[in-house]
Design a protein around this nucleic acid. Structure first.
Length: 480
RNA sequence: GGCGCCGUAGCCAAGUGGUAAGGCAGAGGACUGCAAAUCCUCCAUCCCCGGUUCGAAUCCGGGCGGCGCCUCCA
């Protein structure tokens, strides 16, 4: 299908073909729901969305699952502090991730499994790994993975275990691990865990799952033993994904994921985002400030996922303008006059070229910058053509509109932008009435009255555009 | 210390051997009652030095600068 991804597993571009023709399975590591998701999280989720949409656009039936981690050190600690149970504490955040995803136009997924719902699958995995001699129990009721028993450990991250362990005599008093690099599959119960509902009975004592185990259990049970794609942030390559591989392949004996894609961390105003740097931004905050969802979406998808992306306020303004232009373009094209006897134009060629150029870029490891460029080249050339063409053949116009809609099935910018431009019926009636009044005033050359109405509408966030075909209106971008 | 990334116009960002996409901002012009939208023109030789090559932003070497991961942070 011509689509290539940089597979972290081999660090080179590989042509993507799903294991089962026509169908793709994807697992994306989701957030830990202990607070509101930040824009960095959403760069990642929007990247997931792009993978999801693009594969669907290419004609694949995609089964995409993203987990929500609701039991780990952070959620337990926060729940304890709040005096709530784990589920009481995490539910609002789990809901807000999905609500904000909706607002940003991220397609709903097949499932959003939550770790606490997969305890039995995890126990099965742990049992299996113990059986196969890949794990061992410790005195405190924990179970650790013995990475020395999994020779392929390190293949994803390129970690050379032997080199790192030269002369190392490890004694870890806290956990009693045989080797510092061994990781917890299951953790023995700690004081307070039970009160927040973070302890489960198991054959090896009461306890709760290790973080890495959660993803393996959810991915295997939701998507089968070998996934087509496994996605995550760059920070997860080691140890999280390395550990997932060890667990999953150790248990099944089969390749866990065929392609691993990792998205680079977002920067904010040129710096790493962190609470201490004071540049920690949540999507929730931006939305409360009135920033348009389409602008957020545009900026967060504007760079290819493996490259730096610098999130800036200035850039957000630019994104807002860019999306507004796209919306204006669509309206203009849709409203352009058609005539049965219109001469043919180069519009079909421009339409074809847009799709071809877009596909070429996106096939190249999801080069969204190139994809957006293809779209804007199409916009510019088509506008030029419309300026010079009083009326189009309907088929040509519709085809161009279909191309625009098609590209947006992947980008989702018009989709999200439309929402901000919709107004309710009552307001729309009022707007139409005012426009008619203004048109009368204009026909009488009563410019003062006409301008007064323009101002009146502007006060409600409505912008008017006088054209040869009459007056059109739209919701001001600054109100969107 | 280990692994890796990046350095392209005021800002964001494509391009990885044949003489610089796109977005935003800026300047000038067209159109326009005003405005909006739109169009046209202009605005970079790609951090520095050396090398390979007929030819390099693009490959190699060396600098300088910025950044990420390696701490259950996407």
């Amino acid at each position: 299908m011509g689509l290539r991804f940089l597979n972290t597993l081999r660090r080179e571009l590989e042509t993507f073909e799903p294991l089962s023709p026509g169908k793709a399975t994807i697992y994306g590591c989701g957030p830990t729901v202990y607070g509101h998701a930040h824009i960095g999280n959403f760069r990642t989720f929007l990247f997931y969305d792009l993978v999801h949409r693009y594969l669907a656009w290419k004609g694949l039936r995609v089964r995409f699952v993203m987990n929500l981690t609701d039991v780990d050190d952070k959620t337990i600690k926060a729940a304890k502090a709040a005096g709530l149970t784990l589920s009481e504490y995490t539910r609002p955040y789990a809901e807000s991730v999905i609500a904000e995803s909706d607002i940003l136009g991220i397609r709903r997924l097949e499932r959003y499994p939550r770790a606490t719902m997969y305890i039995s699958e995890m126990l099965w995995l742990v049992g299996r790994l113990l059986e196969r001699g890949l794990a061992y129990r410790t005195e405190d009721g924990s179970v650790f993975y013995d990475i020395s028993a999994f020779p392929e450990y390190g293949k994803l991250s390129g970690t050379d275990l032997e080199a790192g362990r030269q002369g190392e005599r490890v004694v870890d008093d806290d956990y009693g691990k045989d080797d510092v690099r061994d990781f917890a599959l299951w953790k023995g119960v700690k004081p307070g865990d039970d009160e927040v509902g973070a302890a489960w009975d198991t054959p090896w004592g009461k306890g709760r799952p290790g973080w890495h185990l959660e993803c393996s259990a959810m991915a295997l049970s939701e998507l089968g033993q070998t996934l087509d794609l496994h996605l995550g942030g760059e920070d997860l390559i080691f140890p999280h994904h390395e550990d997932e591989i060890a667990q999953s392949e150790g248990a099944t004996g089969l390749p866990f994921a065929r392609f691993w894609l990792h998205v680079k961390h977002l920067r904010v105003e040129g710096k790493k985002m962190s609470k201490s740097a004071g540049n920690f931004i949540t999507v929730r905050q931006l939305l409360e400030e009135g920033v348009s969802p389409a602008a957020i979406r545009h900026q967060l998808i504007s760079a290819q996922y493996r490259n730096d992306l610098n999130f800036t306020r200035e850039g957000l303004e630019g994104s807002s303008k860019a999306v507004g232009r796209l919306l204006d373009f669509e309206e203009r094209l849709a409203g352009h006059p058609v005539r049965p006897d219109a001469a043919s134009t180069s519009l079909p060629a421009l339409s074809d070229e847009a799709v071809a150029s877009f596909t070429r870029s996106m096939d190249d490891d999801l080069n969204v910058s190139g994809g957006l460029a293809a779209l804007f080249v199409f916009l510019n050339r088509t506008n030029t053509l419309l300026d010079a063409t009083p009326a189009l053949a309907e088929s040509e116009r519709n085809r161009a509109l279909a191309v625009l809609a098609s590209l947006d099935e992947v980008l989702g910018l018009l989709e999200v932008g439309h929402r901000a431009r919709n107004v309710d019926g009552a307001l729309e009636e009022w707007i139409e009435e005012r426009i008619q009044a203004r048109t009368r005033a204009r026909s009488e050359q009563d410019w003062a009255a006409a301008d007064a109405i323009r101002q009146e509408l502007a006060g409600r966030g409505i912008v008017l555009e006088d054209g040869s075909a009459g007056t059109r209106w739209k919701v001001s971008p600054h109100n969107g």
